[in-house]
């Protein structure tokens, strides 16, 4: 391979620059807080589960860039990512099915609709139920998008041991 890649390999082993690591360590909590704000705020303004999930994944991408794939890859195993993106889909589908079941129980067949959040009996008011159900669905979307984008990035930058030996030989 060319010289850039071997240079990147050395810095990956060393663990990167002090300034980059410090700035990343300072920035990541704020990026994640902003991502959560975007997810929660998505019902009433610009933003939403998809954008918040992408911003959350961007914080992990920043961690990977700053601390190197070896350190970060131990903290986000592939199995945990798979569990997370299943969990998000299950939250989305579960809230939708809960709407059907609750609508069927309380209002009969014609009102039972998928993802009609007002029927979830979280509070006494229909509108508040709708807002809370929308937030639940947004959280599910955010978890899925976060896990999928992190997984794609890891699979792109990850160099497995056998592959690395083959490329450099």
């Amino acid at each position: 391979m060319n010289s850039e890649n071997s240079e990147a390999g050395e810095s990956r082993e060393r663990g990167g620059d002090v300034i980059v690591e410090t700035v990343a360590r300072l920035m990541v909590p704020f990026i994640q807080l902003f991502a959560l704000y975007v997810i929660i705020h998505g019902a009433g303004g610009p933003g939403g589960g998809f954008q918040g999930g992408v911003i959350f994944a961007a914080s992990f991408v920043l961690l990977v860039i700053a601390f190197g794939i070896v350190n970060a890859g131990d903290r986000f195993p592939e199995a945990v990512n798979t569990a997370f993106f299943s969990l998000g889909v299950y939250i989305y589908a579960g809230v939708g099915l809960l709407c059907i079941i609750m609508g069927f129980l309380y209002f009969g067949v014609p009102d039972a609709q998928y993802l009609n959040y007002g029927f979830i009996p979280l509070t006494a008011h229909f509108e508040e139920n709708r807002a809370l159900g929308m937030d639940l669905v947004e959280i599910g979307i955010g978890i899925t998008v976060m896990a999928v984008i992190t997984s794609i990035f890891f699979n792109l930058v990850w160099k497995r041991e056998s592959e690395e030996g083959g490329e450099e030989g």
Partner: peptide, 15 residues
């Protein structure tokens, strides 16, 4: 614009 800035300028560039 939010989606474009987050996905287009952020995630896609990293990918």
């Amino acid at each position: 614009a939010f989606t474009e800035a987050a996905v287009g300028a952020g995630a896609t560039t990293a990918f």
